[in-house]
Design a protein around this nucleic acid. Sequence first.
DNA 1: TCCTAATTAATAATTTTTATTTGTAATAAT
DNA 2: ATTATTACAAATAAAAATTATTAATTAGGA
Lengths: 137, 137
Amino acid sequence: MQNRTLELLKSYHLKATPQRIEILNVIESLGHANIDEIYEVAKKKHSTMSLATVYKNITALLEKNILNEVALNNFKSKYEIVKDRHAHLVCKECGYVQDIELNQEIKHISKDISSDYNFNFENLELNIYGVCSKCSK
Amino acid sequence: MQNRTLELLKSYHLKATPQRIEILNVIESLGHANIDEIYEVAKKKHSTMSLATVYKNITALLEKNILNEVALNNFKSKYEIVKDRHAHLVCKECGYVQDIELNQEIKHISKDISSDYNFNFENLELNIYGVCSKCSK
DNA sequence: TCCTAATTAATAATTTTTATTTGTAATAAT
DNA sequence: ATTATTACAAATAAAAATTATTAATTAGGA
């Protein structure tokens, strides 16, 4: 949506097509969504939307770092708008993903890594698996 | 391999077939491997090995918690023998995965989660992405 | 308004994963 | 040990997921 997204797309020379904007809207409103979820929801507003279009846009948006992949054990990857460092609660039952704050210790892990392991740190992904409140009833 | 593996399989009522043992050997020797890597290496010792056999065994071993999936951004999932809690260094270039120690703070994250978010904690996966020393040359 | 490159829809092709079938082999029972 | 039972493997087919192709459309700049 909105000017921020439009500006972002523009700055990366991606056209602000209705399909692309809709895909971003869906992801933003769901928080995290996989290919099929995005396709199903986006299709409602945009009946001709093709699954291949979703794939291609996701790929393009990942390359530009507008989206971030969330690879999950036992579920298809979900995608989220890039945002500040955070962790994920992942429900093993339903696959729901919830963002949570990352504590300070983990945020500072990067320095250690780079020196201790001669590894060029870029980002970290902390996924916490368990059962959400809905599913544990 | 060896008695530990054989005992483990036995205790889960999984037959210790040559194919299954070979698959476990390959994973153990590589540390982390995806389906194709396992298939390619296992095929050398066991020329009739079928890809479907690898899939089926990985699924069975995951269900029994003998193996653990390592879902990766931008790469196919890899599999590892279940072991004590640890983190992964993941090279964005070559996909190589290296185990590292998990520091104490993270090890204790489970308590907070369960209470703060009404979430039934099971396990966590910390993947640190960057470029390994080989690829950064 | 026009032009051009990017994008889309539709479709096909490819790749990945799962299911089915049939024969075989590992374990348990005898 | 020998046989019976069941899990398993290989081969194949089927299904699901992803990517490529093509021709038509459209966004965004000139």
